[in-house]
Design a protein around this nucleic acid. Structure first.
Length: 561
RNA sequence: GGGAUCGUAGCUCAACUGGACAGAGCGACGGUUUCCUAAACCGUAGGUUCCGGGUUCGAUUCCCGGCGGUCCCA
């Protein structure tokens, strides 16, 4: 029985027929109020026409009358809060149960359910830059969190691998690169020839531009040479992306770019017309969503071309048919909110039952401006990761650390800097913030982990799991840490429901702070038994929570720093 | 012009979705290493939560009206 259920039973006893299932027990906002609190008597008081404090008192009395509750103290405070203190025995039993649970007690509520998560999605033939961190890192964390909850996750990278840029690229490849560059084609070369070719396409006479367009048409019509080139561009791009993903610990199940859905788009449009959703307007086919204040979505342009709405509708149909997912989660920047609302609405009208979720994040800027080549403020992801490694290596080498450790710490810093913010907030990139190694940072958490590992190694504790784990909580510092550790599974669920890895990051930081404080004030190895063992068990549990939690964020946990 | 979104300490951000005295990090100032890793810990200073109304026992959170930033659509 959970605490909420226990208190809910007291509510039921005091006020039969109430909504006792709605009762929530939450951690106390301040230790001086106790361990947990329940604020629901205040809400209920109005319904039953009682004074809030009287209603709370009635629940408190009912709670006192219940047999075998976990509470050693129940108080009514303030306007009608129920302040709850749990007994030492209950806490010890909870900790023991928590310690023996698989995967730190993360509930397997996704068992048997499948989720598609669509994230990162860079454009082919371009190098990844700092603007790509957010979708990649946030998406990866959501991916890991959902997997931990037992969901069958399909991580898909919806590459930008189709469109007019390929006409420009093909033309540029043939005429702007040296033989050597063509033989050793890299994404950097592709980017270079794109820039050169695009510049020529802007020339007055329009000759180059027309040539690019012809190459595009040939590609679209399946010309063998152009298709082969396009395939090569994509292959090289994915190779380069995977080099970045390897550094970031990101792994996709599929790389299905926009091109994958090409052949399905005419069918989608046909069905839209048949359903009476798409109508003609000024030569284009549109879906009018004015009734929902979503404006108008074009599904086929007047020149016959399709756009993102059509492609995304085809993509949903394809994913539903192939995977039958319970939901599809899209992690993209918030500029695309209208687009997602539009195509979600259309998909629903076409009978799509799958829950479609857009997780929008604030666009990353640099020096106050949107990141773009034109602004000259583009920092390549590779550069950022190199600098991250370089900075941490400077510190790590003095402590006997190697390059591998520098990578773990540097990349951890980069990822944490992003994940610790609510996705909704826009981030203006700064080297010092992205690479922070102190305070609320990835390395702070990694350091706390390394310290606890060191402590456990020196203790000679049997970590095989064979020995029974017994918990005894006595001091306030121990109790605060213990109560915090028990919140881990619920926090993972909250992060998943809100699609906010920041909820978990924030929790881990607070937990590490409590641990550091405890560590400072409470000797472990030098304590006498039974305190020594009791504290060691708490430390071990903290280590497990931290390792598991950081793992969900995609941050590595070296045992020695 | 319509719509979305944000506005919290000098700076960067939290606040478990309506709860108690709004909390952290950085920066500033001061303290803690014969003691388990000082990337740490402890303390001090710093707030009209953009402004004005409203709902509520209670509002950073919800509603209305402004102001300001960013973005999308036309």
């Amino acid at each position: 029985m959970t605490l909420s259920e226990t208190v809910g039973a007291a509510f039921e006893a005091a006020f039969p027929g109430g909504e006792s299932s709605q009762i929530r027990v939450v951690p106390a906002t301040d230790p001086k109020f106790g361990d947990y609190q329940c604020n629901d008597a205040l809400k209920l008081a109005k319904k039953v026409g009682m004074k809030p404090r009287d209603a709370a008192q009635k629940v408190a009395d009912a709670l006192a009358a219940l047999e075998g509750t976990p509470f050693s103290k129940v108080e009514v405070a303030g306007p009608g809060f129920l302040n709850l203190t749990v007994s030492g025995d209950w806490l010890a039993a909870q900790l023991a149960g928590f310690a023996s649970a698989q995967n730190c007690g993360i509930p397997q509520r996704g068992a048997g359910k499948r989720v598609v998560i669509d994230y990162s999605s860079p454009n082919a033939a371009k190098q990844m830059h700092i603007g790509h961190i957010r979708s990649t890192v946030i998406g990866c964390a959501i991916d890991r969190i959902y997997r931990a909850l037992g969901y069958d996750v399909v991580a898909d990278n919806h590459l930008g691998d189709w469109g007019t840029q390929f006409g420009i690229l093909i033309k540029g490849y043939r005429e702007c690169l040296t033989d050597d560059e063509r033989a050793n084609l890299t994404v950097a070369n592709l980017e270079k020839c794109y820039v050169l070719s695009a510049a020529k396409a802007k020339e007055e006479d329009g000759v180059w531009k027309d040539a690019c367009r012809r190459e595009l048409v040939k590609l679209q019509q399946g010309d063998a040479d152009n298709v082969a080139l396009w395939r090569r561009f994509i292959e090289i791009s994915i190779g380069e992306f995977e080099r970045m993903y390897a550094k970031l610990g990101v792994k996709f199940d599929t790389y299905r770019g926009e091109s994958y859905y090409n052949s399905m788009m005419p069918g989608v449009v046909e069905r839209l017309v048949k359903a009476g959703l798409a109508v003609e307007s000024e030569g284009a086919l549109i879906v009018n969503l004015d009734a929902e204040k979503l404006g108008v979505a074009i599904v086929r342009k007047s020149d016959g071309g399709f756009n993102y709405t059509t492609s995304d509708l085809a993509c949903v149909e394809s994913r539903v048919a192939e995977y039958a997912p319970e939901r599809i989660i899209y992690v993209t920047d918030d500029r695309q909110q209208l687009h997602f609302r539009q195509f979600f609405s259309i998909a629903a009208k076409m009978g799509c039952k799958t829950t479609l979720v857009h997780v929008p994040f604030g666009l990353m800027s640099y020096q106050g401006k949107a990141i773009s080549t034109r602004e000259g403020n583009l920092i390549r992801l590779d550069e950022l990761l190199s600098e991250a490694k370089r900075r941490s290596l400077e510190i790590v080498k003095d402590r006997g650390g190697d390059e591998r450790l520098a990578e773990q710490i540097g990349y951890g810093a980069v990822k944490y800097a992003d994940l610790s913010h609510d996705p909704a907030t826009a981030i203006d990139f700064s080297w010092d913030k992205a690479l922070a190694l102190e305070g609320n940072s990835g390395p702070y958490l990694q350091y706390a982990y390394a310290r606890v590992c060191s402590l456990l190694e020196k203790s000679g504790r049997d970590a095989s799991g064979a020995a029974e784990r017994r918990f005894v909580v006595s001091t306030p510092a121990e109790k605060r840490l213990a109560l915090q550790l028990l919140e881990f599974p619920g926090t993972v669920v909250r992060a998943a429901d809100a699609y906010k890895p920041s909820v978990l990051a924030d929790y881990l930081f607070q937990t590490a702070q409590l641990y550091s404080s405890f560590y400072q004030s409470s000797p472990v190895l030098k304590s006498e038994e039974p305190v020594r063992s009791a504290r060691l068990e708490l430390c071990a549990l903290f280590g497990e929570v931290l390792r598991t939690g950081l793992g969900l964020l995609g941050i590595e946990t070296p045992r020695h720093i």
